[in-house]
Every structure is written in C-alpha cells, then in structure tokens.
Design a protein around this nucleic acid. Structure first.
Length: 306
RNA sequence: GCCUUUGUAGCUCAGUUGGUAGAGCAGUGGACUGAAAAUCCACGUGUCGUUGGUUCGAUUCCGACCGAAGGCA
C-alpha cells in the first residue's frame, strides 16, 4: 500500500517545523490538512508556513480557496487526494500536516462522504423549521426515519440532526447506512502518524506567546482589511482571531478583550484537538523534549513512544 | 473624619422572608462521517470578608473590625 507520513498535534505544538524537517530528510512534500490555511489571505492568524518555508519544501492545500467560498471535508478529501497521488507518482513522500483531525482522517482513511452535499435551499428550510418547531420536533422526525442516528445524536446537536435529515431527504437512505458502508472501505494509505503533545501547561504558554507574536506581526491589520472588504464569509468567518477582531472593529469589545478572547478560543480549540487525537490509536506519540521551540530534529522525531 | 453602597466558586454575579448556596464564563473529560479554528454533551464544597451577639440554628438579622467603590466635609 502507498505509504504516507502524518504529523498531528494541537495548534502551536510545532507541527509545521517538524514536518519541514521530515520533508527535507525524506524527500517529502507537505500536504496541509488545516481547514483555515486553505484560505488565501488568512495568513498571520492561521500561522501559515512562511514563504521561505514553502520555497524550501513544496506545500499543498494552502491558499486554494477564497475567503468568500464555502469549503468542506469532502472537497478537501477530493483535492488533497489528487495532491497526494501526484506527489507519490513523482516519487515523493506525502507528509500530511495539520490540526484539523477530520481532514487528516478524511485523506488517510477510506471513508467516503455522503454523495449529497449542502444544498443551500434544503438546509435553509431545515434551519427555518428548526427554529419554528424546535429541537425536539426535529429530533423526533429523525427518529422516525433513522432511529439509530436519533439515538446516537443528542437532541441539541442541531448541526448533525439537520445533516442526517438532509441526507435522508436527498438520497432516501439514512446516514446511518451510509456511515456503515463507508466504514467498510479500506484505508487509502498506509499512514505512519506522529503525534506532538507538549503537555497542557506548556501548550497554553506557547499559545499565549504565539498570539502575542501574531499581533506583533500585524494580525490586526490583516484582519481589518478582510473585515472592511466584507471578505469573511462561511467557513472562513469562523476563523479564530478574525472573528474576535471583527467584534473589536465593530466596537463591541476593546482590543484587550478581543486579544484575551483570541487566546481563550485558541486554548479551547487545542483542548478539543487533543481529545480528537487521543482517541486515535494509530498515532505514535513523540517524546516531547525540552526543545520547546518546536525545532525538533529528525533523530528526536524517530524516538517514538506509545 | 462622617455617610452610603459593597465583600458569596479562578472571574462576573444570583440567592437564601434565618434551616450551611447556584448560574454564566473559565477549567477538566468526552463526542465528532459534506460548517470541524465549527458544533454538541457531562462535571459546581465554596472558612458565603473577619469577629462577637441574638437564635434550637446565621452566609442570611444586629454590632465591631478589615478591604473595595462612591458621596459629603
């Protein structure tokens, strides 16, 4: 089976630096699996690799969408697979590097997403009904057609309840069936997955420092440009940093408050990322040593544990 | 110096007409199949500022003291 490498870890754990070292050592190319680095213009706030980094090692799946576009896992799966295949054909080692666990998994595992996407109209309609009739009513409706999904999903899990209803309405089949079939598809790559875990305390400290650096590097200016041009829509509007600063530009909060919120949201994100990664037993966790700069060397990377 | 307000969970604050207290946020754990930097779920003992008094019983009433904010001199 085709072999690939994956570098996983929460935000600010040093993935980018490690991936570049590995790419240089093993003649690899980096495939970013990050739902926000996808977007052109979200540079500082997403800690995108520098132009230098990208000139040393080829990077894929970065700057491929406009911030006004919708993006989705399924599109990522399609496009990133093309990149990985292309790299393999050229004899390069694909190194998947990114903090979006769902995207990493979408590329490695065989799992396929439901053939139907977000049909704007239908989703709008479901949303409207959700507000008119309430969460319980929608959950009950799901239970009538797909009892398993209903049992699995919490009544308040609006996003997933609505998606399950959407899939049923468009395909006539349940998402439960689709998922079951999807699970049987073998993985598309033999992936060796490395995990980076600095530990909670150190991670939070690094996040604080990173936010400070981002602001020094002009995050406010970058965010203001996008904000004033009304360019942040859909998925990109969810990007941490940009949305907090937008509240500041609107005068809803002070810059200090926005900064504090930015740090907090990033910490919340890192925690969720760790929850996702911990549940993945394919990951080999690295010994995270005292080199907190993130400049891990390859021999250190080879010292896997767990 | 006097008067008023105020002191309850890491933070912001509810509350108990006297029977030792609860929300939001933070934090921790978990989930996650076309929004995933999103979304959802679970977890709340803290000398109720200190110290006397009244009371069967006080965080709740009264006094003193300490801290904070405001007002008057």
């Amino acid at each position: 089976m085709k072999r690939v490498l994956a570098v996983c870890g929460p935000t600010a754990s040093g993935k980018t630096a490690l991936a570049i070292h590995l790419a240089l050592q093993f003649d690899g190319e980096i495939i970013s699996a990050d739902s926000m680095q996808i977007y052109r213009g979200l540079d500082i706030g997403t800690a995108k690799p520098s132009a230098d980094d990208m000139s040393i090692v080829p990077h894929h799946m970065i700057d491929i969408a406009d911030t006004s576009e919708k993006y989705s896992v399924s599109r990522f799966q399609r496009e990133a697979t093309v990149c990985a295949e292309d790299a393999l054909h050229r004899g390069k080692l694909p190194i998947i590097c990114g903090g979006t666990g769902l995207y990493v998994d979408a590329l490695i595992s065989g799992r396929e997403y439901s053939p139907v996407g977000d049909d704007g109209r239908l989703r709008e309609e479901l949303e409207r009904e959700y507000y008119e009739r309430g969460a319980a009513a929608m959950h009950e409706r799901l239970a009538a057609v797909d009892a398993e999904s209903a049992a699995r999903l919490h009544v308040n899990d609006k996003k997933r309840v609505l998606r399950a209803l959407e899939v049923y309405a468009q395909t006539g089949g349940t998402i439960t069936d689709h998922n079951a079939r999807s699970r049987l598809i073998p993985p598309r790559y033999d992936a060796f997955m490395l995990g980076l875990d600095p530990g909670r305390e150190r991670l939070y400290e690094r996040i604080g420092l990173r936010v400070k650096t981002m602001l020094e590097h002009g995050l406010e200016h970058e965010a203001r440009e996008l904000f004033e041009r009304g360019k942040l829509m859909g998925t990109a509007a969810q990007a941490i940093g940009y949305k907090e600063l937008a509240d500041y530009f609107c005068g809803k909060v002070t810059l200090d408050e926005a900064t504090e919120l930015l740090c907090r949201k990033t910490r919340n994100l890192a925690k969720r990322q760790m929850t996702w990664l911990r549940a993945d037993d394919r990951i080999a966790w690295l010994c995270y040593n005292s080199r907190i700069s993130g400049e891990l060397t390859v021999p250190e990377a080879a010292q896997t544990s767990g």
